[in-house]
Design a protein around this nucleic acid. Structure first.
Lengths: 201, 201, 201, 201
DNA sequence: CATGAATGAGCTTTCATTCAT
DNA sequence: TATGAATGAAAGCTCATTCAT
C-alpha cells in the first residue's frame, strides 16, 4: 500500500527519528535518514511535520512523556498499598528507570535524554520540557519519600527535598556514566536508598 | 597586527572553540564561527590545525586535561598534611569542581563536558578520553577515601569503590542538572559526604 | 519548466560534463560549471549522482563505450560480405574513428580520450576502462586483418598482432597530434594500410 | 645551510615539479607539495618564480627542451659518418626516445608529455611549445630520411613528409599506450622502419 | 633568501525545505 | 498522501598568493 493513514506513517517517522536521535544526535540525523528508516521518501516528511523541530517536539511528547507517565502510574499503585515497603518501592523504581518500561529501548532512552540536555541550550522548548520533567520527578519522588516518612521507614533528619535531589542526581549521574563506561554497576545506587532508610542493615 | 606567532593564534582559536563548543555543540559550531571569535579568517584555520577533529583533540588536551590536573595537585597537597580532615577536603574538592580552578569558565566547562558525552558516541578518541578521565577520577577519589578510612574519618562498612562511584555520579548528576535548571543547589551533595563519615553531625 | 524527469536532466548533465571534460579536464571542471551547462543549479547535481567520480563513470559508460560499439557493429557488417575489400574496410574504419559516429563531436571525443589517459594515473577505474578498451580494439582489428589474410588481401609475412598494434598506435598518434596541430593530415595513415596489403599500388 | 644560491634551489624546485607533474598533473600538484619535494617551505617558492605558470614554463624550457637537444646532437653525429646505415640510426633513435637520454627518468618524461598535451588546451604557451616541438621533430626526421634516400637506403616512392609523420605518430602512439598498458612492446615499431627501407629483409 | 601566518576565492558535498506531479 | 527533482545556504577543506619577520 502506497497510501496509508496519516497517523500510521507519522508514528513510523517518530519511531525512526527516536532511534536516530539516540544514535547520531539531532544535527547529524537528516530528514532523508529518518524517512529511510520510516520506509518513505524525503519529500513526504513535510506532509506530516512542518519542520524538523516540530518532529523533535512530537518525539518528546509522544515518546519521552509517555514513558515517564507509565512509571509514575505503576509506582503509585504499589505505594497505595497500606503495607508497602518504601525502600523496596524505591529499588523497584530504580530498576524501572534503568530497564525502561517497555524494556525494549532503554539504551535509546538514555542516549536520547543526553541529546536533549545538549539540545536544551539551543532549542528553548527542549529546555522547558526538561525543566518541567525535572520538577515532575522532584514532585513524584517527594511524594514517595514523604509517604516513607509517614510510615516511619525514611529518615526525618534530612530534608525531603535534599534527599530527592540527591536520588535524582545519583540516578542521572549513573546513567550518564553508563553511556561511556559500560562496566559501571548502576545498582550500587541502592546503597543511597539504604542510607536514607531508618532500618539500616 | 596581521601577523602573530602561531602559538598565540592557536590559543585564540582554542579559546574560541571552547566557548562555542559549550554554547552550540561540535556540529553546530562552524570553522568560520570559530575563526570569527579568534579574530581571523576561515582560511587561516588550516594553518594551525589539520582538521576540525584535530582542534577538538587539542581543546580536550589543553583545556580539560589541564583543569583536572590542577585540582588533583591542590587536593593532594591538603591531604598530605597529618592533621587533615578528609570531610573538609572532600567538601573543598566539590567546591573546586563546581567553581573551576581559574574560576572564570566553570559554566563552559560543564557544558563542554556534556557535549563530550554526546560526542563520545561519534568520535572514538573522545570516548577514550572520557573513559580515561573516569578512571582517573575513580583512582583519585579512592585514594582520598582510603586515607580517610586510615585516619578513622570515613566509614569502613561500605566498599570504597561504591562510595567513590556514588560520589562521582552524584557530582555529575548535579552538574548535569545545573545545566538545565539554574536553581539547583549543588552544595546539597555535601550531605552524602557526611553520610560517609564516621563522625556524623 | 522547473521540474523535469530524472533521466532527462541526467542526460543534460552528462552532455555538459562531456563537453567540459574535453575543454578543461576533470579537475578544472567544477560541479557548478557542469550544472550551469545543464541549466540547473549546483545543489541538484547530487540528486542525480552521488559524487563527481560517479559522473565520470557514467560519462565513460554512456558516451565513450557506446561510440565504440557503433563502429564495431558497422564494420562487421561490411566485413561479412563475401566480396569485401579489407583494404577499403580499413580505410572506412579510420574514417569512422576520425569523424566519429554521430559526427557531431569528434573533437570532443579525442580531447576526452587524452584526458582519460592522464586520469588513468589517478583514478583506478579509468585505467581499467582504458585497458579494456585497448584490448577490445586489438581483438577487433585482429579479426579484420585475419579476415584480410584469409581473403589473400593482407600480407602474411608480418605477425597479425604486430600489424594491429602498429595500426592502433598510428591511429592514436595522429589523433594525439591533431589535438595540438590542427594542420596534421590524418588520412596519411592510409599509407600504412597499403603497406600491409598484398596488392600494393 | 638555510640560504643557498638562487640557482641551486631553483633547480631543486624544477626537479620536484617535474616529478609531480608526471605523477599527478598540473592542477593536482600544489605549491606546497612541490616545495616539500624541494626541501623548502611554501613561502619561498615566490622568491624564485612569480606564478605557478612561470614554473611550468621553466620546467618545459630546462627539462623537456634539453632532452630533445641531446638526442638531436647525438643522432646527427652518427649520421654525418659517410658509411652510416640510416636504418640502424633510426632504430637507435627510437631506442633513445624510449629510454631517455640520461636514462633516469624516461617514464616521467612520457607522463609529462601527455600532461602537456592536455594542458595545451588551457595554457597557450604550452600549445605553442608543443607545436614548435612537433615541427622540430618533423624537420629533424626529414633530414634523416632524406639522407637515407641520398644514400639509396630509404624508399623514394613515398613522400618524405608522409613517412616522417607516420614515424612520429607511431612513436607517440606507442608511448601513449605504454602509459596505460605496461605490457605493450614498443620495439615492434622497428617494423615500420624496415617497411620504409629499400633493402627489406 | 627563507619562513610561515594570513587571506579569499573556490572546491565538493550536505541538507532542510519547496513544489509540480 | 507520496514522490523525487530542484533550490540555496552553508559546511569543511584546499590552494595560489601576499607579506611581516
Amino acid at each position: 500500500m502506497k497510501y496509508k493513514t496519516g497517523e500510521e506513517t507519522k508514528m513510523k517517522i517518530i519511531d525512526s527519528a527516536f532511534q536516530l536521535l539516540a544514535d547520531k544526535g539531532y544535527d547529524a540525523m537528516s530528514i532523508e535518514d529518518i524517512m529511510k528508516g520510516a520506509g518513505k521518501t524525503k519529500g513526504s516528511f513535510y506532509v506530516h511535520f512542518k519542520t524538523k523541530e516540530e518532529l523533535l517536539y512530537e518525539v518528546i511528547e509522544s515518546r519521552l512523556d509517555r514513558d515517564f507517565g507509565h512509571i509514575v502510574e505503576e509506582i503509585f499503585k504499589e505505594l497505595s498499598v497500606d503495607t508497602c515497603n518504601v525502600q523496596i518501592v524505591l529499588k523497584r523504581l530504580m530498576h524501572l528507570v534503568h530497564t525502561g518500561t517497555g524494556g525494549a529501548d532503554r539504551e535509546l532512552w538514555t542516549a536520547t535524554y543526553y541529546q536533549m540536555v545538549v539540545l536544551s541550550k539551543k532549542i528553548p522548548f527542549v529546555r522547558e520540557w526538561m525543566l518541567k520533567q525535572y520538577h515532575a520527578w522532584v514532585d513524584f519522588m517527594s511524594k514517595i519519600l514523604t509517604r516513607g516518612q509517614d510510615l516511619g521507614q525514611i529518615r526525618t533528619d534530612i530534608d525531603v527535598r535534599v534527599m530527592v535531589n540527591m536520588l535524582i542526581s545519583l540516578l542521572e549521574g549513573y546513567e550518564l556514566r553508563s553511556m561511556v563506561d559500560l562496566d559501571v554497576e548502576v545498582y550500587e545506587q541502592i546503597k543511597l536508598i539504604e542510607l536514607f532508610s531508618t532500618n539500616q542493615p
